[in-house]
Amino acid sequence: MDEIGGIYQMIVSVGDTTFHLNLTSIGMTWIVIALLLLFGYMATRQSHIMPHSLQLVGELVVGQFYSLTESALGKEKAKTYGPLVVALFMFLLFSNWIGAIPHMQEPTTDLNTPLSLGLMGFVLAHYAGIKAKGFKGYIKTYFEPIAFMMPMNLIGEAAKVISISFRLFGNMMGGSIIILVVSYLIYSLILPPFLYAFFSLFIGTIQAFVFTMLTIVYIAVQVD
């Protein structure tokens, strides 16, 4: 049971400051990126008007998320943000699914990964807001109903990052803890594959979708 809390860290000190590198999540993230690149290469290789199976899957995902982005942001902005949305979903999907392979750990069970992705969405949403409304109009949204509500709006914007990243982290971490505890209780008989299928494949897919949808919604809220 010690493996839940333990994180393998490499501590590098440069001058007075020390950096803590979580080697497991870094390695897993690189594996996920390599798998994504492989998938992209295989899906676009020998592309044909009669698609082969991988090309079909790739076109399905890209088409679905483009249409979701279009329905939220409109046709013009979907061209800008569509690729990012699809890439975010694919990355999260592969990150969550890789936990189903033995001896692999999801990068999302480390809080740093969801938090950095949430911050990325936050910065992107505010950049889109400034670009769409101009700096004055962007500042004006904070004083929206009355000027008195400004602190509430600021806290609300900060809470979005916390909620979106902790939701993903808590789901994946909670799933892996439940898998460990239940496997320990039943001596790893029969049940663990189904637990992995439920928590990694099913919950992971839903959480990747929810994270992507919420990022689109945050961008749409700032743009309108």
């Binding site: 909620s163 902790f166 939701r167 982290f169 808590g170 789901n171 971490m173 909670g174 839903i206 959480q207 929810v210 919420l214």
Partner: peptide, 12 residues
């Protein structure tokens, strides 16, 4: 999944 988030906060 969205309404689950308060439960996830308590888990964290």
């Amino acid at each position: 999944a969205v309404s689950e988030s308060t439960g996830i906060y308590s888990l964290v």
